[in-house]
Simulated assay, not measured.
Amino acid sequence: METIDFDRLTLTPGMRVLDIGCGEGRHVHAAALENVREVVGIDIGRENLTAAREDYEAYIAGETDVPVTFAAGDALRLPFADGSFDVVCCTEVLEHIPDYEAALDELRRVCKPGGTLAVSVPREGPERVCWALSEEYHQVEGGHVRIFDRDELQAAIERRGFRRVDDHFAHALHAPYWWLKCLWWDRDQRDEAPLALRAYDRFLEWDVLESPRPVRLLERALDPLVGKSVVYYFELEGPA
C-alpha cells in the first residue's frame, strides 16, 4: 500500500532515491521498479529492515536491476553527504519525531538542489478523531506526538527552500478502520477486537493484496473527504 504516487514524480535513469523511515520497504520496493539509478531505505527499527530485505528478495529482486540498499539510520542524523539524493521520501514519519524541524533540516541537507521531496503525514481531521476516541492511540511508545496543521507543515518545508508542486490525500478507507480501532482500543490490545473491526481488517488486507478496481475507484473518490494521509511534493529550488 503506497502513499506516495510515483506517477507524480519525474524519475530518470540517473536518479538516486532515499526513503527515510522506510518501515517494511513498501516505497523502496515501488521505487526499485521504476527507471532509476539506485534506491536506499533507512529505518531506526531493525525488525522493519529485516522484513524489508526479506520482502525485497522474495518479490522484487527478480523483477529489477536497480541496486537497493537497506540500512539503519536516524532521521535526525542521516548518514549521507550533503546533496546525495535526487528524490527524498519521508512518509508517516514526522508525526513521530518531537523535533520534526531538525528532521526537516536533514531532509533538506541530503536533497540535491533541483531535487524532489515527497512527504506525508496523517491528515488533521481524521487524526483528531483518533485522538478524541483514544488517549492510548497517541500515548503508546513511539506513537504520534503531534497533529499537523497542513499550512504550518507546508510553510516549515518551504522555509528551507522548497517549492510545493503537488499534493493529494490518500487512504480514505483506512480512516474508519482506525476510528474503530481507537474506539475499541483496550479490547483490541487484548486480542479481543469486535467482529466489525476484525472484518474490516480482513477487508483492508484483501484490498492491499488484490487491489480491485471498484474499491480503488471508491477510495479515490473518498480521499478528498476523509483521506487519512496528506501527501506533499516539493522541489528544492536551485540548479539540478
Rank of each mutant, 00 (worst) to 15 (best):
L104K: 03
H27M: 11
D7N: 14
E237L: 15
I147R: 08
Y137P: 02
C111N: 08
V230Q: 06
E2P: 03
A175F: 01
V28Q: 07
F162V: 08
G125Y: 12
P13L: 02
L236M: 12
Y233F: 12
T12M: 06
R53P: 01
L18H: 03
P122V: 06
H29W: 10
D207G: 01
E235H: 15
F80Q: 08
M1D: 01
D7L: 08
Y200H: 09
F234G: 03
R108E: 12
L78V: 07
A193F: 02
P212T: 02
C90Q: 04
I44W: 04
A118L: 10
D223E: 09
S211G: 13
E124W: 10
R128M: 09
A240N: 12
L117I: 03
D86S: 14
E158P: 08
R77K: 14
C89A: 11
H27D: 05
K228A: 10
A75H: 05
S84H: 11
G238C: 12
M1N: 09
D19T: 04
V88M: 04
V88I: 06
P122K: 05
R198M: 09
P214D: 04
G161Y: 05
L195H: 08
E34L: 14
W131A: 13
D19Q: 07
I44D: 09
D86C: 10
A199I: 09
A175W: 00
I60T: 10
D151H: 11
D19S: 07
D19E: 11
T116D: 07
E152F: 03
R202K: 14
W185F: 12
F6P: 00
C130K: 04
P214N: 09
R198H: 05
A103L: 06
I42V: 15
R150E: 15
L209T: 14
V208Y: 12
V231H: 06
D55W: 10
A51N: 07
F203R: 06
Q139M: 13
I60M: 03
D151W: 08
A31G: 12
T91P: 00
K112L: 13
V140N: 11
W184Q: 01
G45P: 05
E38K: 13
E63K: 14
